[in-house]
Amino acid sequence: MSRTRKRTLFRGAQLVAGICALSAVLTLESPAFAVPVRGSLLIPKEMLGRVVRDGTDRHYWKIWNGKLGPAPSPVDAGAMVGVALTGPRGKGAAGCSYRLQDGDLTPSTLVVPKSTAITIENTDSFTHQLTAEGVEGFSAIGTAPGNARRVQFARSGHFVIRDALFPHVEGHVHVLNDLVACGRVTSTGGFAFEDIEPGSYRLRVFFRGHELKNQPVVVPDGSEMRLEPIRIDAPSSKERTRAPGTNGT
């Protein structure tokens, strides 16, 4: 074989190898572009009213000022509803944050991943003593202002967090095995998941001890996904005020 022919074959082989390598690189490392998922919840107003447990609001006086009529209580759906995406590739708690703010747990419905430590930050000016029955390591320990409480839920299910000092504090924790992300819920019911990779998920909506929605969501590749408004059927008033308990189911 001539030297030229050999040189030509060698160059051809190099070209094929380069093409194959390029193809392999392009094939294996092609980026899946994460997109935000947005939506809104149509929440009945009666769901967002203040829920007072029996015997927790004890006082001597409640006196109207006699000048101005009572103002409506502020409605903050985001402080009461938990929205989460779950899927087979759930690994963490993206977008999940928990804190003590204005004297209460925010949000009061918490969605947390299983066996993953979470942090509850105390942004109030006073100490809280959070505790949860049935959760190991979650006894009533004071959390001073500016500090945070780290807890971990080893079992999936529903748990109730209370404050040993303030009876109005009541948080409902839903521990999920395949939590992908927590949605940030606005006071009006809008929610958003940031950086959700395309794929199939389930959108789950929790309100206190109840799961009000559990629907599939397919996040497309490319651009932001906006979901149709999700209508939430309010549980009965009895169910709303019922503390489901901490049975872990």
């Binding site: 609001d57 703010q101 204005d102 004297g103 209460d104 303030f166």
Partner: peptide, 10 residues
């Protein structure tokens, strides 16, 4: 802190 509040206290 400036963010501290009592609005959720009954």
């Amino acid at each position: 802190s400036k963010t501290a509040g009592f609005s959720k206290l009954p």
